[in-house]
Design a protein around this nucleic acid. Structure first.
Lengths: 107, 107
DNA sequence: TCATCAATTCGATAGTTATCGAAATGTCGA
DNA sequence: TCGACATTTCGATAACTATCGAATTGATGA
């Protein structure tokens, strides 16, 4: 039997994290600078330029780059290059997955 | 105007965490051993003896003691001494407070 | 009191990480 | 192509932490 295809309702996908990801996210959240950066980033739905982040935090380019990489490896942010510039976006679905996971494992 | 006092419904108190506590909890959760210990502990509503935890994890007494202290400093567990023995309990309300806080700060 | 046992603290070591200056990479506009 | 600029990578250092054996503390029972 056939059904006509219909546009599916957009479904928020429920990521499942590996054990390793859970630990990487924990680590990412455990550093004060990264936590602050992430908090700031989460206020900017459309993303934030690298240089804007730098302006907020009195931090060297090298150190910022290091922290952004940690956040990216953990999956909590995504970076987008536009020419010379890089913008960072929070990946909310990863945070959600982390919260669900903590609740499931420990709650 | 007066009302007769009635037994209050037990209210789960909503802890508010300091910035420092948030980071300590993150750190506590970022170590694989501590995460496993906490997971195991959360399966035992009534608490778990130190020696039982040791049996689960092939870990030296010194190292276990170190990790339990980290978890306690973070506020995630509570230790109760009964004579020679120590039992550990998960403080669920701290975990809840942590989850709420992440949601509020980053969600 | 004393020997014993559970747990913690001490001391040392190996591995990790935050930090930043300097060098490198990559992109844009002239 | 070239110079300027944004970001990353490299290299080095200081601080932190996980680990464990040894020494210590504290409590029990004999």
């Amino acid at each position: 039997m056939h059904h006509a295809k219909i546009d599916p309702m957009p479904v928020a996908k429920q990521l499942a994290l590996t054990e390793e990801q859970v630990l990487l996210i924990g680590k990412a959240l455990a550093d004060p600078r990264r936590y602050e950066i992430l908090k700031r980033l989460s206020d900017h739905e459309r993303g934030m330029e690298c240089s804007s982040v730098r302006d907020c935090f009195d931090i060297s380019p090298a150190t910022l780059s290091h922290h952004m990489k940690e956040l990216e490896v953990a999956g909590l942010v995504q970076s987008v290059r536009k020419g010379k510039f890089v913008s960072y976006l929070v990946r909310r679905e990863m945070l959600d997955a982390y919260l669900r996971r903590l609740q499931a494992d420990l709650g």
